[in-house]
């Protein structure tokens, strides 16, 4: 009983600072817009955004579904591919040194520059969205996981060697556990990258998904509507990041 109460208190303590800060910023924003009498198409007031947010939900709902499924599938693929490439990189040094410059440069390329080309090849359907998300999100998983594998504690590895564990056993009992904190860092960062990749692809082409809605509203100077879409994006981003952090807390013991 006492324990659940403590948990509740901890939860409240963790939640109130960001909530208060966000509220304060919204009030500041609202006041500045009111006092300076800023045009709504230039910068919408929070109150306008929220009223559009409520009004629009029904129209936007299918788009939310499309964006969210794309990002979730793309992120899952990116994490799997990223981890696989990291394992290959660390197991076969020659292949690793061949792959590393490519993964690093993929990490640096802004997706806006790549999406138009991808769309010429793959069209504007779902596949191009998924490809964009994967390309944007997997390198950061690979880079972090590989760092984790290479930085595994030499003493931990020596124990495995003294037991004559084979490569797979070394990986299973030692390397992956030692690399886990870095793997989770990679996954958290990749959830952010997946959001950016997904929205960028939707904004560039096609008429489905939140990104396409934002481009559409901006085209008609409907700023409040455009900004209200961003709330859904920010929400998914925050949720994904928190879920991965939560799993990390359960899984990592150092």
């Amino acid at each position: 009983m006492r324990k659940t109460k403590n948990n509740f208190v901890n939860f409240i303590n963790a939640v109130y600072p960001p909530v208060l800060l966000i509220l304060f910023l919204f009030i500041l924003w609202q006041t500045v817009c009111e006092v300076k009498n800023i045009q709504v198409w230039m910068l919408a007031k929070p109150s306008d955004i929220f009223s559009k947010f409520v009004e629009n939900t029904k129209d936007i709902l299918p788009h939310i579904g499309i964006t969210y499924t794309n990002i979730l599938i793309g992120l899952a693929l990116a994490i799997i591919i990223g981890l696989l490439i990291a394992v290959i990189t660390c197991s076969f040094p020659v292949l690793g040194s061949a792959l590393t410059p490519i993964t690093v440069s993929l990490c640096c390329i802004p997706m806006v520059t790549l999406v138009p080309t991808l769309m010429l090849i793959f069209g504007v359907g779902r596949s191009v969205k998924l490809i964009t998300i994967v390309i944007q999100a997997f390198p950061i998983v690979t880079m972090n996981a590989a760092t984790g594998f290479l930085n595994a504690d030499p003493a931990h590895i020596e124990l495995m060697q003294s037991l004559k564990a084979d490569k797979f056993q070394q990986f299973k009992y030692c390397l992956i556990m030692d690399a886990l904190p870095d793997i989770f860092t990679g996954m958290k960062l990749s959830s952010i990258m997946a959001m950016m990749g997904g929205i960028t692809a939707e904004m560039t082409g096609g008429n489905q998904g939140l990104g396409s809605r934002i481009s559409f509203y901006i085209g008609f100077s409907k700023t409040p509507e455009a900004l209200s879409c961003i709330i859904y994006i920010a929400f998914l981003g925050a949720v994904l990041y928190s879920i991965i952090s939560l799993i990390e807390k359960k899984a990592v013991r150092q």
Partner: peptide, 12 residues
């Protein structure tokens, strides 16, 4: 059986 200078236990 091999014993190390440090306990070298796996923390997880």
């Amino acid at each position: 059986g091999f014993i190390f200078q440090v306990p070298n236990l796996y923390p997880w």
